[in-house]
Amino acid sequence: MAAQLHFRDVTLGYDRHPAVHHLSGEVAKGSLLAVCGPNGAGKSTLFRGIVGILKPLAGQIGLGEVAARDIAYLPQSADIDRSFPISVFDFVGTGLWRSKGLFGGFGKPEIARVDHALSAVGLTGFENRSIGTLSGGQMQRMLFARLLLQDARVIVLDEPFNAIDARTATDLMDLVLRWHGEGRTVLAALHDLDLVRRHFPQTLLLARQAVAWGATAQTLTAERLLEARRMCEAFDDDAAACAIDAPPQRAA
């Protein structure tokens, strides 16, 4: 199958220190890929690189025919001002930004789409609540409703099920599987390895470098997880400039 995302020797990081180091590989169109690894492994950094918020220090991220701004992105800790006076309906409605822009009218079809998205995440009846009144789980459901409206070919979820109860996680996982069924490419950073083994066909085990990348069963083995855990988290302030130009290719 054609590749949706290409990583060509990508190094991403902060202040010249690599957080993702020499990553190469491809993500096939329509794949459902889990990105696993210890804290500080570079999962969020990789996602920030994919959606174009962070520029690679070296290498390239190819997005195929999709523009970075057409990727739906759920950040790990959404930087949302919950005291802002906006209703759940209006907030979710911002998911239509790409199609509506500055002035696009908000008529009956749009209202119906927002209502539909809200009911898909189980938030019917919350339309007029202000976002500050939602619980953590409801907030996450609302963010998923906005992702639904974004109708993106590529969806990037950074630890979407953190601090969320089992029922909400199950509901939201169903949405992820639905996206997969619709042929969208979904990447999700996850810590729940059982969930990954159950639902995700492909896994990238990341520990700054790719420790393993491929079918989930072969990737999440005991020895590889141990190898990933041994990764040193701290940046070395005195590190010399990296000399490697092109490490061996790994592909999914």
Binding site: V51, G52, I53, R69, I71, Y73, P75, A78, D79, I80, D81, F84, I86, F91, T94, W97, R98, G101, L102, I131, R146, Q150
Partner: peptide, 23 residues
């Protein structure tokens, strides 16, 4: 009136606006 939408979205969820638009 022209910048209303990006302004509101940037207040509530700046990261979202950055990920979908240059506005």
């Amino acid at each position: 009136a022209v910048i209303w939408r990006p302004l509101v979205i940037e207040c509530v969820d700046p990261l979202f606006l950055r990920s979908v638009s240059r506005a």
